[in-house]
């Protein structure tokens, strides 16, 4: 699947009403989903529009993107990777979740076992990327900063590495990489490429645990295991769904998520969003991962 990026265009009022919206906890619209001729139009207000044409063969979607005039093409490309691709991945039977992931080496107590991955799911601006960056800087390579792509193979959910960069807001970038970190735009996320001090895992590893980040950013540190039933309802909001009116696909997706909630340990994770807390949060997660 490739993105065909057209020259920027203004986001004129669309002739259709959206059949679905992504709304942030603060109540502003992050994305609108419209039915369009032979497919869908997804609008990210103030950022970009994407026209998705249903494929003839069932898999190869045509995706055309237009940046909004006030945004650069990089924003549209990031949205394509972090939203459009996982949306279409789930639409075609895949298993994609909104989250970051790092390697943790917590496959049982056998030190020779294959290292596993731990995933952090959460809403935008919930701390997923900062947590992944914090783990990476302390020696746990990151696999992805925004999209969990799982592929079932031989009884394992293999978590696929994505782009080898973190996208961080200025405050997180400065905390993780120092006060002298160059910031292009204080209001936008900064791209930070992986490197020797920020290791990236470039191969798929089995998913071991999922942590769902709580929305109370002043809550004390706590980790609680979800029952399988709780896990299913906790995971579902972090999936990417293209067509909420397509019941057969929704049913199939629900079944895949139910399998995941039975096969993988899921936890709720609360912690105070204070950078000074991150070492304690990392230690608690690794202890939990190793069964301490």
């Amino acid at each position: 699947m490739e993105l065909k990026l057209e020259p920027p265009r203004s986001q004129e009022l669309l002739p259709t009403q959206p059949y679905d919206r992504w709304v942030s906890p603060e109540g502003y619209c992050q994305a609108e989903f419209h039915k369009a001729d032979a497919g869908f139009l997804i609008r990210f207000p103030g950022q970009a529009d994407f026209l998705i044409k249903e494929p003839q063969n069932g898999f190869d979607f045509d995706v055309i993107g237009w940046s909004a005039p006030e945004c650069d093409d990089k924003t549209a490309i990031n949205l394509f990777h972090n939203a459009i691709q996982p949306i279409l991945g789930n639409h075609t039977g895949g298993l994609f979740l909104h989250g970051s992931a790092v390697m943790a080496g917590c496959e049982g107590s056998d030190a020779e076992a294959v290292p596993g991955a731990i995933a952090f799911l959460g809403l935008s601006r919930g701390g997923k990327t900062t947590l992944a960056g914090s783990f990476a800087l302390s020696g746990n390579p990151f696999l992805t900063e925004d999209v969990i792509d799982l592929r079932l193979n031989d009884g394992h959910y293999l978590l696929q590495p994505k782009r080898s960069k973190l996208r961080l807001f200025a405050d997180s970038a400065r905390y993780l990489f120092g006060e002298n970190t160059p910031i292009e735009d204080a209001d936008m996320k900064q791209d930070v490429e992986a490197g020797s001090t920020l290791p990236f895992a470039d191969r798929a590893v089995p998913l071991q645990q999922i942590y769902v980040l709580g929305t109370d950013h002043s809550a004390p540190l706590s980790i609680r295991r979800y029952s399988m039933q709780e896990a299913l309802s906790a995971l579902m909001p972090h999936a990417f769904i293209l067509d909420v009116e397509d019941k057969p696909r929704l049913k199939a997706h629900f079944a895949r998520m139910a399998d995941l909630s039975q096969d993988i340990e899921c936890y709720s994770l609360d912690f105070t969003r204070d950078y000074a807390e991150l070492p304690r949060v990392r230690a608690a997660i690794l202890d939990n991962c190793q069964g301490v």
């Binding site: 029952s227 399988m228 039933q229 299913l232 309802s233 579902m236 909420v244 019941k247 929704l250 049913k251 629900f254 079944a255 139910a258 909630s261 039975q262």
Partner: peptide, 22 residues
Amino acid sequence: DDVVAREVGGETVLLDLSSGQY
């Protein structure tokens, strides 16, 4: 027709697609 169901861990979880409730 708006409800999907799945057995998970010995219990049945229902999702009402129209309301998003479990």
